[in-house]
Design a protein around this nucleic acid. Structure first.
Lengths: 231, 231
DNA sequence: AAGTGGTCTAGACCACTCC
DNA sequence: GAGTGGTCTAGACCACTTA
């Protein structure tokens, strides 16, 4: 094997050997030292290449046990989650949002289990509609933990949506995303101006910083809405 | 600042400074050398930490220009796309699949534009149902480019599903994923044993190796199905 | 032209886990 | 216990971009 120059080339060569069945699924492949000798580079260069491929799911690595080609490579699709305004503007439409309600409220019973905060009256609930060229695009139903983001109370959300304000002012350490198809209920069909029962994409996002809940939002999309991603 | 020990701690410290507004969105942050001195570690350790955060979208890095805190951090959700069998078994259910049809056919007119292959009679079309504990979980509607995977013709798909066979035998270089909510049509509602018009999650996956199309599949999920992910 | 990040090296020590 | 990957260091050179 000719000497290679970078971890990028090493990655490609490893992928090539997997795809051409030189190394078969489940099979153990040579260790870092051996590959470093073969490729004429330092071990850490091979290490970087293999860690990247393991992160992508193509390799399974274990200390002492070595590195194996993944049996059923778990593909990961990367979904970009932009601010709603940018999502709409990137589609070439004019963005506008409208606040519908804004109340301090108790946490709905169904949420309380998932809520890590004990207090029951410290939630800000709000509804808004995001328009793309005057067509309702998303009906947003959001709860915000006031204790985590006290500055939220000073916001009117006229100039900037809660979505965008939170992205800029309440960074989170981790979050969960759930996608579900569901029939539009009375409220969301009215908000979106669509027929009741129409199939809509419901996106739920919840974010925390260090186990303190920041916000939970339900995004009801228009029926035609597609979420696209690459593998 | 006390000396830190690992790139993991450095990452957390950087995140902390971003979250607590020590470093504000859009602001330039110190260079690798300066942080390495502050944290009492090698530059490459800082480099690893910052590259990871840039990959996550929290930082924007440019040579010579330095590193800045991202203005509107585009969050990326990582969707795991496992083999359907594993998806069902991981949910604790018994997996079973049933082939419904298997014909060589022309490419449906609606697809031909997206198809990069000119030939019209070289497609294998198949339908299957994936069961979780004897409940129809996914109705699969798949087209396979025979020219790209000739060995597919020898498969009966009794012992192994097309999904799993392709994952193991037809590695792809890139793919596209589309998620959409739609009402069940006559066929899919019958296949899944659900009411017509019920909101179901429709997943479309298309994969290529080097611009040669391998397969395109429509997965019709049960109405309750949720797709979960982390941010 | 100069300063920043990107990558690589050679070596070291450590952590994990299989034997 | 021994062998593997995980991480770190100190130094080097290079690539890119801004000034």
């Amino acid at each position: 094997m000719a000497a290679m120059q970078s971890s990028e080339l090493i990655k490609r060569e490893i992928i090539r050997r997997i795809n051409t069945r030189v190394w078969r699924p489940g099979q153990m492949i040579p260790g870092e030292l051996e590959l470093a000798r073969e490729f004429g580079c330092a071990r850490s260069t091979v290490n970087r290449a293999m860690q990247e491929l393991a992160r992508r799911g193509l390799l399974n690595r274990k200390r002492k046990a070595g590195t194996r080609v993944a049996l059923n490579p778990v593909r990961r699709a990367t979904l970009e989650v932009p601010v709603i305004r940018e999502q709409i503007e990137n589609a070439g439409a004019h963005y506008r949002h409208q606040l519908i309600s804004r109340t301090r409220t108790a946490v709905p019973a169904g949420f309380r289990a998932a809520w890590h905060t004990g207090s029951r009256r410290k939630m800000l609930h709000m509804e808004a509609i995001h328009y793309a060229d005057d067509t309702p695009f998303i009906y947003e139903n959001r709860w915000i933990n006031v204790a985590a983001v006290p500055a939220i109370l000073e916001q009117t959300f006229n100039a900037i949506s809660a979505n965008e304000w939170l992205v800029q002012n309440a960074p989170f350490t981790h979050g969960a995303l759930t996608l579900k198809a569901c029939g539009a209920d009375a409220i969301s069909s009215q908000r979106l101006g669509i027929a009741g029962g129409a199939a809509i994409m419901l996106v739920e996002r919840t974010t925390w910083t260090d186990d303190v809940l920041i916000t939970r939002v339900l995004l009801h999309h228009r029926p035609e809405h597609c979420i696209e991603s690459v593998l």
